[in-house]
Amino acid sequence: MLAIPAAALTRKPERLSFEEASVVGVSFITGWLGAIEAAQLAKGENIAVFGVSGGVGGAVAQIAHAVGARVIGVDRVRPADDTPAASIIEEFVALDSGPQDIGSTIRRLTAGNGVEVVYDDRVEAFEGAGPLMLALHRPPGRLRPRVGPVVHVAVRRLSRRWTP
């Protein structure tokens, strides 16, 4: 048996099936572990969320907003108007504009400083993302000393091992 405080529960939105609702928490756990536990995102910091229109990216945007960070969303398409991410990102940068344009746009949006945290759960979808992520960081790039080297995990390939 599992005891959960009533305040931690909420009703399933009618528009979601039980299957869809059962995985909502996964995106938030993933987002929390990356943005808060690993990156130690804090109030007043800037975060560039790559894949902001997706499940994990949208969750990261909501988590970042909740802790008081400034959220810059990056994706191929802007989050749909009826999603929580759409209402909380402060800026949106189109992913198809290319690495140089993305970097210069984010630098411009942060008065030349860059961001403290870059969150990208879809690295394999964008060639050259590693150097771009390092270029976007506000010096000295605090993720490297606190977390160690960047580790890229091909989640889709990994998850196939457990998918029937």
Results as ranks from 00 to 15, higher is better:
Thr30Ala: 11
Glu37Gln: 08
Trp32Asp: 04
Leu41Asn: 11
Gly34Phe: 03
Lys12Met: 07
Ser22Thr: 04
Ser22Leu: 08
Lys12His: 07
Ile29His: 15
Ala7Arg: 14
Leu16Trp: 06
Leu16Gly: 05
Leu9Arg: 02
Arg15Leu: 13
Arg11Ser: 10
Gly34Thr: 09
Thr30Gln: 04
Phe28Asp: 09
Leu41Trp: 04
Phe18Trp: 15
Glu14Thr: 11
Gly31Met: 08
Ile36Gly: 00
Arg15Asp: 05
Ala8Tyr: 12
Ser27Glu: 09
Ala21Ile: 00
Glu37Ser: 10
Ala35Met: 05
Ile29Tyr: 15
Pro13Arg: 10
Val26Glu: 11
Glu37Cys: 04
Trp32Ser: 01
Thr10Lys: 14
Ala8Trp: 14
Ala7Val: 15
Gly34Met: 01
Ser27Asn: 14
Val24Leu: 15
Thr30Arg: 00
Thr10Ile: 10
Phe28Ser: 04
Arg11Trp: 01
Ala7Phe: 09
Gly34Lys: 05
Ala8Asn: 12
Leu16Arg: 02
Ile29Asn: 11
Gly34Trp: 01
Ile36Asn: 10
Ser27Tyr: 08
Glu19Ala: 14
Leu33Trp: 03
Ala8Ser: 07
Phe18Gln: 13
Val24Glu: 11
Glu14Tyr: 05
Gln40Phe: 00
Gly34Ser: 06
Thr30Leu: 06
Val23Ser: 11
Thr10Trp: 03
Glu19Trp: 08
Leu33Pro: 05
Ala35Gly: 03
Ala39Lys: 09
Ser17Ala: 02
Ile29Trp: 15
Ala35Ser: 14
Thr30Asp: 06
Arg11Tyr: 05
Glu19Gln: 08
Ala38Asn: 00
Glu14Leu: 12
Arg11Lys: 10
Pro13Thr: 01
Glu19Val: 14
Glu14Ala: 15
Arg15Val: 12
Ala38Arg: 15
Phe18Tyr: 15
Ala21Phe: 00
Lys12Ser: 01
Ala8Cys: 14
Gly34Ile: 04
Thr10Val: 12
Ser22Pro: 07
